[in-house]
């Protein structure tokens, strides 16, 4: 009985996938960090263009890029750049992926608001998440152990944070949460906790301290909530948020992306807590026809 229902589910899944690709529906999948943002963009876009059909789901950047390569979706959302390995797999599948930047994120490191620590350097944060620093007293806090809250390996934030901050392996003691929201909730409840999330998730969050971060000791500290610091690059762990497509940007997908990068789309980006794209990224987008 159970097996039969599973098979039935698999079959309906297949049928659904097939019809989704053939219809004019745009399937978007990937990064948990921007799933809410892209959903909002799609909602407003569909209101203005009733004939457009867009479905947006999460699953993580790895899932989004794998979905783009495996042709399970039209757009793969990612909060990290595509890896060399993934480019290889994409070209093996006959694809030449293009990328578009739709917003900027100040990746936020958060602690419980009961924690005395309010700022850290990138090096300190890296050592904490590598498992080298295990007590808050080592970074100016009170004497209590540090509990790490991170993301699962399919997360682009997990990958980006490792490349830019850890430059090494995550401590195996880190708890892997399902998404940004779960990290926010866990750190709120845990006075010893530390976690990292997209800035869109900490705008109005009570019970948290969003840490100020400096490149290294002796350099100025900046907050990810400060738009100027993020745009100028003074905030050390700012990052572009991407959308990947399998080939050239064209058709219905292009029209939607034009909306995302338009002044109106960028206003939605800001109300969702992220930052608008800078000229640098506008130029990059222009190269793929936007």
């Amino acid at each position: 009985m159970k097996m039969m229902s599973k098979i039935a589910l698999a079959v309906t899944g297949l049928v659904f996938c097939a019809s989704a690709v053939s219809a004019e529906m745009i399937q978007i999948k990937g990064s948990d960090t921007i799933v809410n943002l892209v959903q909002k963009l799609a909602e407003v876009y569909m209101q203005q263009n009733p004939e457009a059909k867009i479905s947006v789901t999460g699953g993580g950047s790895g899932t989004g890029i794998a979905g783009m390569i495996n042709k399970k979706c039209d757009i793969g959302n990612a909060s990290r750049a595509i890896s060399a390995k993934e480019i290889e797999l994409a070209s093996a599948a006959g694809l030449n992926p293009s990328r578009v930047v739709i917003a900027i994120d100040g990746l936020s490191v958060i602690v419980n608001d009961g924690n005395a620590v309010t700022k850290l350097t990138v090096e300190q944060i890296g050592a904490i998440f590598r498992g080298k620093i295990t007590n808050w007293s080592e970074v100016g806090g009170s004497n209590m152990p540090i509990t790490l809250y991170g993301r699962q390996s399919n997360s682009g934030t997990y990958g980006f944070f490792r490349e830019m901050v850890l430059k090494g392996e995550y401590s195996p003691k880190m708890r892997s949460m399902n998404g940004n929201a779960q990290i926010v909730e866990s750190v709120k409840a845990d006075p010893t906790g530390i976690g990292y999330v997209g800035v869109g998730y900490v705008r109005d969050a009570a019970g948290l301290t969003v840490l100020e971060v400096a490149f290294k000791d002796g350099m100025p500290y900046a907050s990810p909530l400060d738009e100027k610091a993020v745009e100028s690059g003074d905030y050390p762990i700012a990052r572009p948020l991407y959308q990947y497509v399998g080939g050239t940007v064209s058709g219905a997908v292009k029209e939607f992306m034009q909306f995302e990068t338009s002044p109106e789309g960028q206003k939605i980006v800001q109300t969702e807590g992220f930052f608008p794209i800078t000229d640098e990224y506008r130029n990059l987008n222009a190269r793929v026809g936007l």
């Binding site: 699953g59 993580g60 790895g62 899932t63 794998a66 390569i69 495996n70 390995k85 993934e86 797999l89 699962q152 390996s153 399919n154 003691k173 708890r175 892997s176």
Partner: peptide, 17 residues
Amino acid sequence: SVKTMTATIAIELGETA
């Protein structure tokens, strides 16, 4: 905190090429 065999498959299969 533990990560079981089933959870490993469920979490990771979606992201692998």
